[in-house]
Design a protein around this nucleic acid. Structure first.
Lengths: 153, 153
DNA sequence: GTTGAAAGTGCTACAGA
DNA sequence: TCTGTAGCACTTTCAAC
């Protein structure tokens, strides 16, 4: 279900994405409205599931998460049972920040953030002991050039 | 530079990651402290750059961003000038949610979120017209199995 | 770390376009 | 219906202990 948003809704979402700590008054001023309508719109956006979570971004490197891998996975198994087991393993592991099922040659891609290369190896060993995987390629990030979750509305 | 955090700091960050709309009192109660010390800690974490941004996650699909690609890039160019041009192009394009420089065979990986396959093609054409790229592989996401920015503290 | 008080904000009720 | 005004309760912020 796609929700109808007008120009003001889009501006509000833009401001919230940019800085969710702004006050209602501030947002209202920027989008050219006032407190109450903005508050009502935000409530509806939350209820409608458009706004899913309010959170903070932390500096991963400052917190000692110095290694980031993109993991390309091929599997020979495509049964429902295997998929469920694999999905469960991914969800349980906090190192896995993203997981996508892909079209084409490669079946899955993961983004895995860990403290160091050894921690990645531990993750990798644990994963392949839990589920059968045909082929794994790990791409090591040397530098995070850009990172955002902002959608261009 | 890695910053010293104690158990309480880590719990505060955990709570903020989980739900940044909680009140100070609520967080204080959960971490076993009280308002003012928690407030002071959060201020220091912001000043120290540990907390970088407060934002909202939006439902990309509900907003019509139905296509997500991981783009693997090989280039033959490795001069500083080319890199700067490439970096500038990535930063200017809001479709690019993530960009990493990699070690090894593949030079860069991008995560690109767009409304549909045609929008991806427009992005792709624009990119290769701006900077010389030797080889591109696009992996199309069929399903987002997991997506989080939470760090396991 | 605690108390407490001033300033600011979120949320609700209500009235008008 | 949606928008704006007004006000109370709650929260943030910060000084003094």
């Amino acid at each position: 279900m796609s929700v109808r948003l007008d120009e003001i809704d889009r501006k509000i979402l833009g401001e919230l994405q940019r800085d969710a700590s702004q006050s209602l008054d501030e947002i209202a001023r920027k989008v050219g409205s006032s407190k109450t309508p903005v508050w009502n719109r935000i409530r509806k956006l939350k209820e409608g599931g458009i706004i899913r979570q309010q959170t903070v971004f932390l500096d991963a490197e400052a917190l000692g998460f110095e290694a980031c891998f993109f993991v390309l996975i091929r599997t020979s198994e495509h049964e429902a049972e295997w998929q469920q087991k694999f999905l469960k393993a991914l969800k349980e592991r906090p190192e896995v920040q993203e997981a996508h099922r892909l079209a084409g040659d490669i079946d899955y891609i993961l983004k895995v953030r860990v403290k160091n290369a050894r921690a990645y190896d531990e993750f990798y060993q644990a994963l392949i002991s839990e589920v059968r995987i045909y082929n794994v390629t790990a791409l090591l990030s040397m530098e995070e050039l850009k990172s955002t979750t902002m959608l261009p509305l």
